[in-house]
Design a protein around this nucleic acid. Structure first.
Lengths: 224, 224
DNA sequence: ACGCGCTTGTGCACCGATTCACATGGCACC
DNA sequence: GGTGCCATGTGAATCGGTGCACAAGCGCGT
């Protein structure tokens, strides 16, 4: 059943999605001088259940001390290690419209270890322009950009109509991880990791809850 | 226990999250002249399982015709109705930095029925500037902006340090739905709907998979 | 008018995730 | 040095979601 050599076996997807949140909270704690943190405190910071925090951390083999809590430094190290080994992963942004421009200057990327290493666009009117000190290169040179900078993450910020094309370019260039901001479903090979960030969808989900609240508020008092 | 008059009882959260994707696909189908669509086709468009599509649509009481499929027009109407009743929900954006500027000009918002009705910022250096024909107003006037324009959705695009403050302002102004782009956990009252869109977190999740793939690729051939 | 094929609608089983509750165990204080 | 407190770590039950597989039903062709 177990080889025993699997230091880090497998972390559930839901846990992986929470680790960055823990990490942010832990960094804040470290900056404010806290040396240890309990699962309850960390749960409060991350907005989740305390038992959930403990189970999540148990997957990292980052055990704490009973009666005391977890060591903040150690925890930061373990989570960072799990989330990419601490190595920065340069990103390339495809599609330099409003959103692409904003993303290329978004501080959170650099702070999170994801420096923007390249900008490409298919529109000749945009190619050659400088955004935040970086030149926009034609999408035909995407493979070169990837090779030069060692990009491992591609961000799609094109209009939806061009999203699939952009994804194809990224896959062809050997990018293994893609973050798609375009409101469109794109298909990639199985060995490519694709995540969707859909602003319009998020708003529509909010709209549903709002609509339902009003409707049920007018009908009955039962509100979830 | 049940009134029996609940035309639309409750839709599972996972289904709600897929409805906007269906809607997009359906609109495309309608534009290309398709009158009916089968669950298999729609599933392919949305990238999900066909049985899942059928089950999702059954929650809307939007049943199709056996042997034929679903009527595209009717389905668009039903989904739109579920997702906010077809009424546009104006949004107000708090924090006009790089991201806020991009969001204020994002076409997808208007197209999705979420026109940007107001921009506010706490920084006096930003207040008064015009972004896309709209003036940035001070955060103190947030309540006025909401009242004037009937905003029902607030978008937080501030730095993380100000996110909680922005949320508090929005809640105080009576906004029931908040979309938070700041990489920070914010707390709101129970009756306020809050959704998180965290770019840095998404990248870190991608980083984990990438890291794991390399690690397990060096160890064994087993890749999920 | 009748039967065949296609598609919907759904019961059921599986799976991952969450959460409670409790046993386990270390630290600090006396 | 002993005892009590407190927080971890985890077993087990529960919950929501997914997907298979099949029965039910409608239309179209003959």
């Amino acid at each position: 059943m177990n080889g025993g050599s699997d230091r880090r076996e497998v972390i559930p997807e839901a846990t992986v999605a929470r680790l960055p949140v823990y990490l942010r909270g832990l960094v804040e704690l470290a900056e404010s001088g806290m040396a240890t943190v309990s699962s309850v405190e960390l749960a409060d910071l991350a907005g989740v259940n305390a038992a959930n925090v403990r189970k999540d951390l148990s997957y990292l083999h980052a055990h704490g001390t009973r009666g005391v809590g977890y060591q903040v430094d150690h925890l930061i190290g373990e989570i960072s290690l799990a989330l990419g080994g601490g190595e920065p992963s340069p990103v390339v942004i495809v599609g330099i419209g409003n959103l692409g421009r904003a993303l290329s200057q978004y501080d959170g990327f650099v702070a999170g270890g994801f420096p923007v290493a390249g900008l490409v666009d298919a529109d000749p009117a945009v190619v050659g322009r400088y955004i935040g000190g970086r030149v926009v290169r034609p999408v035909e040179e995407l493979a070169d950009v990837v090779t030069e900078s060692g990009c491992t993450v591609g961000i799609i910020a094109t209009p939806s109509a061009s999203a699939q094309e952009a994804a194809d370019h990224l896959v062809a260039a050997g990018i293994p991880s893609i973050l798609n901001f375009a409101p469109a479903v794109v298909h990639v090979p199985e060995d490519v990791d694709l995540r969707q960030v859909d602003l319009a969808t998020e708003l529509q989900i909010l709209g549903y809850h709002q609509h339902r609240r009003m409707a049920s508020g007018a009908n009955a008092g039962a509100v979830g």
